[in-house]
């Protein structure tokens, strides 16, 4: 199966290690066969904690297959930076959107859905639905 039409997933965390680990976890849990393109954008460019618009833009360009990009974030500046990039700039590919979802659970749901060929609306819905799963 070609991944020409798969939705791309970008995972933005304050920590590079968190973004990379969640990307690896979500890809592993998406199981066999082709998985949707996933790119982490964690921390700052010099490896510190924080948010980098450059890393986000690079990750988005890397996973862009023309079917839209679902961006999941952790908190604070990660959320605000993605919102600012989408509202104001031309740094992100067309069809990029911030998805309101819990970071880990949402990432798994988004990668599973995108890997099954879901469109960006369905990927967003799958990720957001992770909020409704109560743990206690």
């Amino acid at each position: 199966m070609s991944d020409d039409k798969l939705v791309g997933i970008v995972l933005v965390s304050h920590s590079g290690a968190v973004a990379e680990s969640v990307a690896a976890l979500a890809t592993a849990l998406a199981g066999g066969g082709a998985t949707a393109p996933v790119a982490p954008a964690g921390g700052t460019e010099d490896g510190g904690f924080g948010t980098s618009s450059e890393l986000i833009a690079r990750a988005a360009a890397k996973v862009d297959r023309g079917a839209g990009i679902a961006i999941l974030t952790d908190l604070g500046s990660a959320v605000l930076t993605v919102k600012a990039l989408i509202a104001e700039g031309d740094e992100l590919p067309d069809g990029s959107r911030l998805v309101d979802a819990p970071f880990v659970e949402g990432a798994v749901a988004a990668v599973v859905a995108a890997s099954a060929g879901a469109d960006v609306d369905a990927v967003q819905a799958a990720a957001a639905e992770a909020y409704s799963y109560r743990k206690a």
Binding site: E54, S77, L80, T81, K83, E88
Partner: peptide
């Protein structure tokens, strides 16, 4: 200037000040 702040600050003040100046 706003674009520069968004890309270099690395904290929440980057997109906030960046949006202020850019808008």
């Amino acid at each position: 200037a706003g674009r520069q702040l968004i890309s270099t600050v690395g904290g929440a003040s980057g997109p906030l000040y960046g949006t202020l100046l850019r808008r």
